[in-house]
Amino acid sequence: MTPFKYTRASDAADAVRKGAATGVKFLGGGTNLVDLMRETIERPGELVDVSGLSTEIVETDEGGLRIGAGVRNTALAEHRRVRTAYPMLTRAMVSGASAQIRNMATVGGNLLQRTRCSYFYDEDGSRCNKRVPGEGCDAIEGFHRGHAILGASDACIAVHPSDMCVALAALDAVVHIEGAKGARTVPLVDFHCLPGDRPDIETVLEPGDLITAVELPPMPFAAASTYRKVRDRASYAFALVSVAAAIEIEDGQVRDVRIALGGVAHKPWRATRAEAALRGAPAGETAFAGAAATELAGARPLADNAFKVRLAERTIVSVLCELAGVTA
């Protein structure tokens, strides 16, 4: 680890002030950042500990939830309102990492998790455009079984590893940010970037920007939502594919639907094409399969991750069938 200075922020304004200097990183639970610092992939000169800030979950006037960025993953997962009104979020939280890591990791930090691509981690021995823009990507012709099938570029095929963010993408979550120019909000689906030719730019955050909260709008039909994670190990493994979904059915027809995918792209992937195809369609396996195929039509898999296309389609159909109470 490169030497750094450790300070604590007293409040958000203090954090934003401290964060304006170059080389400063905010520290939440540290579950990803400390690891990356030990690998010397991250080399901040100063860590500003923001883990004690904004640790509350409050109901909004609209009937949604505002989740402080410092809320620990476990606290979010076990929150009563989350469990009843947004169960897909609880399910996503408890399928991520291990209980110990969930006790440490914060919501804000979870949004900023970096990819687990082996070549990104191999700082000494491999090329990675995320670490060194323009250097090249060793994953494209290397081990890429776990890599992106949607929205990838010639520069980067890494995937975003978060489970939580997939549920947040499906739930129309909004990220609250404070920065030098004041406070602003960004929809979660716009918060993360696709790699393009600058995979080192992963979010829309400007230097010094602090995530203060994530807000969930009310979504009554999300009370019956779910999250399905497919992985190589029965627990404590990153997703090969995951699906967060909520569906509202009226008279056998899909009135509204939310679908987001994990493990398939550089960002949590909101399946807007599938959603559009489903709205107004009869709730049944045929429509679900058609919608899934529509979404995955844009997939550009490589040799070893082609299975993810079929896996994603099948998992979407299965999850929607489960929520709709129809047999696949």
């Binding site: 639970g29 883990s51 890591i101």
Partner: peptide, 13 residues
Amino acid sequence: GERVLSCLTLAAQ
């Protein structure tokens, strides 16, 4: 009282 990973916890925290 909560279980955490001490390897990813900075002592300063």
